[in-house]
Design a protein around this nucleic acid. Structure first.
Lengths: 178, 178
DNA sequence: TATTACATGTAACGCGTTACATGATTCG
DNA sequence: CGAATCATGTAACGCGTTACATGTAATA
């Protein structure tokens, strides 16, 4: 769907191989858009056929060759065109919420374990976000244009993680009160 | 994936036709799990083959016949089995966040329009959640077991919507300050 | 010696979306 | 008189996941 555009944004920041992209989609960008390396190789090949990116083989010694992709003028134009059409508000799809909704039909202890697991996961996410904020955005007022986007996304990640944790805490306080 | 289980939860609450389910997946359950009627008809048919549900044709006058599905003992057992395996923490996938991340490469006015649109959408979602809370969960302390699940999910919806709105407000305050 | 990192793919499969299809009734 | 509601499907397509495939070098 919009994996193409997530890749375009990533390549606009910095050229990268499929392997590099896969790692980025495991970390920073991956916080709000996941993609496997298989999917990335497939899509980026198509993007090259569409002239949105060009690749160049970089020979390495003692390591496999890398095919490094860079965004083209056409790719930047496509990014702009895409950005001008409204982003749909993606419906959330949460098996966790389904399970909670079915509280009276499911295993209650398993549900509580899920809430705890979810709380822990979002807690550690939040910690890593905060570390990122301290390290890379010490002074948010003095941010260049290129760093403003990543900063705002990080702020969103923090707010959403805080919301999730608060939800888990509320659920636990209710569920554990017998 | 787990549409089956969302349907099982819904049918455990109350038997329904495919059409009824489709409407539920447009409203209450649909807030955290979307499904089209085409998908529902396909899946519920398979679920009947798996004996998780049974159907009964209800003849109506002046309206098409309805095929009403009910959960079976096997269906309830499956719900329990499913609930015992940990719910994965679903990765979020947001084209909106991609666009914001690419702030310096995209159309800034279009991005601001997206933030406003998103804020409005979550604002109206939040309003409907709150109305639901007032109408159906006036006294959260005196909640039966069957109503606890829906209540907690609603609380989650409220918290997440609040987080989204706060994020939009923060983004707007930064983006509009030139 | 085994695993992780580096590096790039192909193939099968399935869930979910979009488009198409039908037909009566009620409401504005 | 047109649109929405009620009611249930089929067909084509595509994105994304899972499994399979290969091979070197550094690290534990």
């Amino acid at each position: 769907m919009a994996l193409e555009h997530a890749i375009l944004v990533s390549l606009a920041e910095k050229s990268a191989s499929g392997y590099d992209l896969a790692r980025r989609f495991d970390k920073s960008i991956g916080h709000f858009w996941k993609a496997s390396h298989q999917q990335i190789y497939k899509v980026v090949a198509r993007m090259e056929a569409d002239t949105w990116v060009v690749s160049e083989v970089v020979v390495q010694d003692a390591r496999p060759d890398r095919r490094v992709y860079s965004i083209t003028v056409e790719g930047r134009a496509e990014l702009l065109r895409w950005s001008r059409q409204p982003a749909e508000i993606e419906p959330l799809r949460s098996a966790y919420a389904v399970k909670m909704r079915g509280l009276s039909f499911v295993d209650r202890d398993a549900l509580i374990a899920d809430v705890r697991r979810r709380r822990a996961a979002h807690r550690s996410l939040l910690d890593s976000y905060r570390a990122d904020a301290v390290q890379n955005f010490a002074d948010p007022r003095a941010l260049s244009d290129e760093r403003l986007g990543p900063y705002l996304v990080l702020r969103g990640g923090i707010r959403l993680a805080e919301g999730e944790i608060a939800w888990c805490d509320e659920a636990l306080s209710v569920l554990e009160r017998r």
